[in-house]
């Protein structure tokens, strides 16, 4: 068994190393896009079972966004929903024999964390302006600026480490058990891995939403820092 911390490049496209995780990501992207295209081919006013499932998914994500941010979900739906779907499918892809989930590789989780970091900046600037976004670092007061800047980095780091640790450990444990105990023994662990994958996808998406929402909210004019004590 290879070290989960190492990623082996199968081939190279320019400067980009194409690993198994990248290929799995492409497959997942293909499946999601083609599947979504097929599922949303004919959407009627009166939904069938397929459309009802899709609408349930969208409504659930919208509800989560609305409850987290308190605002309309439309601007965040694509990003948060795609994050959740991709991570969920990537986590559950470990159930297919021979497929190693992309989220069990550091590069994928780090890439997702980078996207969340960039989206926080993007949505923060778009929602509160550049000044508002910079002001969000001064919440609740100016003293917190260094800590908030550090926190914005560490929380991103913690996100991908959490996701990587949970998924990688699940894959690693199942691999060890399967190599030691035969065919049917890892099944309970695989079921647990499914639950872990669902929870991690949910946590990652909700945390991304919370970070974006906090930045947008702190940058609003109404969310001013407490009044500073003036010297006489």
């Amino acid at each position: 068994m290879n070290s989960p911390l190492d990623s082996v490049a199968l081939f190279q496209i320019g400067p980009f190393p194409i690993t198994q995780a990248v290929i799995a990501t492409w497959i997942i992207m293909l499946v999601l896009v083609v599947g979504s295209g097929l599922a949303t081919r004919r959407l009627d006013l009166i939904p069938g079972k397929r459309q009802a499932v899709l609408e349930l998914l969208v409504n659930t994500i919208d509800t989560q966004i609305r409850e987290t941010t308190g605002s309309e979900p439309a601007p965040y739906r694509s990003f948060i929903g795609t994050l959740f779907l991709f991570i969920l499918v990537a986590n559950w892809s470990s159930l297919i024999p021979g497929i190693e989930p992309p989220t069990a590789q550091l590069e994928t989780d780090a890439g997702l964390a980078v996207l969340v970091f960039v989206s926080v900046v993007w949505f923060g600037v778009r929602g509160a302006g550049l000044r508002g976004y910079l002001k969000s670092f001064a919440a609740p007061n100016m003293v917190m600026i260094p800590l908030n800047m550090l926190g914005s980095i560490t929380r991103t780091f913690s996100m991908f480490v959490r996701l990587f640790g949970n998924v990688m450990s699940g894959v690693f444990v199942i691999g060890i058990v399967a190599s030691l105990a035969g065919l049917l023994v890892p099944i309970p662990l695989m079921a647990l891995d499914m639950l872990t994958g669902l929870v991690q996808a949910y946590i990652f998406a909700v945390l991304a939403m919370v970070f974006i929402s906090a930045t947008v909210t702190d940058g609003q004019p109404g969310a001013a820092t407490p009044p500073q004590k003036k010297d006489p």
Binding site: S7, P15, F16, P17, T19, A21, V22, T25, W26, M29, L32, V33, S36, G37, A39, T40, L54, V58, R77, S78, F79, G81, T82, L83, L85, F86, P102, E107, T108, A110, G111, L112, V114, L115
Partner: peptide, 22 residues
Amino acid sequence: WGIGLQAINVLILVWLLSRVLW
């Protein structure tokens, strides 16, 4: 480079799914 590639992949997926799904 791998991080960047995966980020770009997911970003593309966000763009695609926003058009075919969401």
